[in-house]
Every structure is written in structure tokens, then in C-alpha cells.
Nucleic acid binder design. Sequence first.
DNA 1: GCCAATCCGGACCAGCAAGGTCCGGTTTCC
DNA 2: GGAAACCGGACCTTGCTGGTCCGGATTGGC
Lengths: 149, 149
Amino acid sequence: MLRVSKLTDYAVVVLSRLEAEGGVQTAPGLAAATGLAEPTVAKVLKMLAQAGLVEGLRGARGGYKLVRPLGALPLSEVIVAIDGPIALTACVDGGFGLCEAEHVCPVRGRWDPVNAAIRGALSAITVAEIAMPKPANAMSLPVPVLVAE
Amino acid sequence: MLRVSKLTDYAVVVLSRLEAEGGVQTAPGLAAATGLAEPTVAKVLKMLAQAGLVEGLRGARGGYKLVRPLGALPLSEVIVAIDGPIALTACVDGGFGLCEAEHVCPVRGRWDPVNAAIRGALSAITVAEIAMPKPANAMSLPVPVLVAE
DNA sequence: GCCAATCCGGACCAGCAAGGTCCGGTTTCC
DNA sequence: GGAAACCGGACCTTGCTGGTCCGGATTGGC
């Protein structure tokens, strides 16, 4: 269905809340503020920390804080942090020929430009644009809107 | 994982084969030519026919044929035909508030520009570009392992 | 110096959608 | 009339995602 995982959605919400509050926030606190389940928020935060998008401070009075403002954080990085590498087809996942139709498959490896296009589109949008829409004319990005149906 | 279904991949392969052969091709014939399972190929062809991307001819000596050259067929149409509407998050699927965190969710509906960007990127690429790269060094790709950064 | 709060890194389980197969029915050509 | 092929479903299985939980490590406060 060409979708990102819900965890990615949660990540954007949490990130947004993190910037709105500012400073260091605890996982339970963020959970309460966003209305999401605590273990889930903790999981998202852990993934984000592993990817280096937030910094985890251990011990009492610890928590998480942003290492970069959301305006400088492309959406693609969040997706990669949560969902893994951005690659549309399973062919590139495994790495080598587990595709039994390898010899006759004329599409083999040809999805690369598509992947590149997607990555480009996702890298051009920052988390801030999704989380914090400007009150007035927020939409100034030139996207060729084509609703296929 | 931000991926399209494997059926979509198969669709591109089948479409490619359909144009390479030209004329009317049967589902079993396409299956043999592509190395894919017959029922799977039939399923893909059926979906493509429903979406109007190919035309199904019934009866003996029947089969499927392209209604448009692949060069005039944007990839987005194939994805929509197989995977359904292009929308990255489940939030926009339902249309209204099945998200219990609706009031506190600052991201609500904000994925629209992202979806638009993806659609734009996918509409700019035709199936022909994926299926028919370059006649010369088509076999020179040693499996692009992982495209993450 | 001890205790509590908090992150860290896993393992674990349930639900669901995708992938794939099969069957009966209908249409058309030989 | 029979065979070939599409059509439109239902069906089952597999894998992944979403979500929870637990023990261990680390740090600040009393």
C-alpha cells in the first residue's frame, strides 16, 4: 500500500512535542503529552536515539532532547531511523539473488531511479513542515499534484 | 519499510514482457516467459485489466494486450492499480477520526504535502524507463546492495 | 553510600494484511 | 460441440508490524 509504519507517524508526533516543550523530556512525560502508550513512545525514542536524531540522557533526571531543530531534519531521516532503508522493492533488500526469476527478470535493479526519486522528495521536506504548519500560506513547495485514481 | 507490494514488481515485469513480445499474449505464456507462477501472473493481469492498463480478450486465442505504450504509462498508475491509492499514512485512509489521539495529534492531516510529493515523483517516471533501461549494458548491474545512507 | 528514577537492549506475543492458490463460470474460436 | 482462455470470486498460509514486558546499567539526590 506504499505506506510508512505507524511508528514513523508516532515519531513525528513525539519529535514535534519534544521541540514544542524544549529541553529534556522523559519518555513517560512525552507519552502523557501525546496521548500515546508509554512503551510505544519509549520504543520510538530508543530508535530515534540509535539513529542519532535525539540524545538520551541516562540516570535520574534523565530523558531525551533534540540534537537538531526540526527545521533542519529532513523527513527521510526519520523514516530511515524507524522503517529502515528506503527501498521500494524487496529485490534490493536481500542483496543477492533470492529472486528465482533472476535471469529473465528485465526489471532487475531498475528500481533505483525510483528509489532515488522518492528519497529526493522525502529529503526535501523537513519534520518541522509537517509538525508545525505555518498559520498562513505554509504550502509554497512546488509539487506537481497528480492524484491518480 | 516504505515498499510497494511484490505484485507491483511483477506487474512491471509482465508489462515489460508484454511490450517486448507485442500483440496479444496469454497469461500462461507470459508466466512461462517471465518465470513467475501462472496463477500469480493471472492475478496481476486481472488487476491491470480492471484498472484499464491492459485489455483482456476472452475466448480461445484470447489473451491480454497493452492499450498504451509503456513510455506513456507513469509508474504511479501501476502502483495505484495494484496497491491502491498512494497515501503514506493510515490516518488519511479512513478519512475521519478513528485516531484516538486526535485532539493531541499535531500531525493530523499534515502528511498531505508528503503524499503529493511522492505522487509527483512516481508520476514523473514511466514504466518504460524501468523496464527498458539501455539495450547496451543492461546486464552490468551486480545487484545494488542496500541503498541507505 | 544507598536508593530511586530513568534509559538501554533485548525477547516475546497477538493481529492483520499481503502473497499465493484454487475453483466454478463464461466467452470465443476451431 | 469441445477446447482454450479470461473472469470473479473464496480460501489459506506466511511474514511483518504493532505493542508489551523484563532485567540490567547508569546517574542524580538524600
